[in-house]
Design a protein around this nucleic acid. Structure first.
Length: 173
DNA sequence: TAGGCCATCTGGTCCT
DNA sequence: AGGACCAGATGGCCTA
């Protein structure tokens, strides 16, 4: 992978620093200073430099914890990316040969959900204002798409169930 | 070459 | 206490 080289290089550098000085914080402190301005409130709020936590562990221990933490973070991001990939695969889009970026994926997913919701409401009742705005042409296309995705069997049953859920969800909100 | 996108590292904060 | 989550920083790759 392209960034593997970078990652291993950084790890190597960190290890070297650790071995040389037993104070791997030096470069990290500089990095942290670049994080300014600090977030103002809420989750992830950064503290004033003077209030920063002191590491109780030795340099070696801290370095080990950091590496473990980095690995967990990588795994977490991989899971997140897998979820993005799964989302990409269920969103119909025009330029199928080009991979959707994350922001495109989220935006298209939101639009897709909105359209599907409107379409299903249109199919099942047509009584809500949003459903009336939706053209039957679009509705037909998505119904076709639904059939391609889910096959012929139990479509009515599934659609009925889904639309009931949507209706109750919309009424609840 | 600038800008977009991405993976990774990192330290702070939250949660269990 | 330790893991999860988050956001900033950094640098590589790609494309217009």
């Amino acid at each position: 992978m392209k960034t593997k080289t970078r990652a291993s290089r950084r790890r190597l550098e960190a290890d070297q620093e650790d071995e040389e000085s037993h104070s791997p914080q030096t470069s990290s402190e500089e990095d942290t200073d670049k994080c300014l301005p600090y977030r103002e409130n809420g989750k992830g709020k950064k503290q004033d430099k003077s209030k920063r936590k002191k590491h109780s562990s030795s340099g070696k221990e801290h370095s080990v914890r950091r590496l473990e933490s980095n690995e967990r973070e990588r795994q977490r991001m991989h899971k997140l990316n897998n979820a993005f990939q799964a989302l990409r695969e269920v969103i119909p889009h025009v330029r199928a040969e080009k991979k959707l970026s994350k922001i495109e994926t989220l935006t298209l997913a939101k639009n897709y959900i909105n359209t599907l919701t409107a379409t299903i409401l249109n199919i099942t009742s047509g009584s809500l204002p949003m459903a009336q705005e939706t053209s039957t042409d679009i509705g037909g296309k998505f119904y076709q798409h639904y059939q391609q995705q889910h096959g012929e069997e139990n479509n009515d049953e599934h659609l009925k169930k889904y639309s009931t859920q949507i209706h109750s969800f919309r009424q609840g909100s």
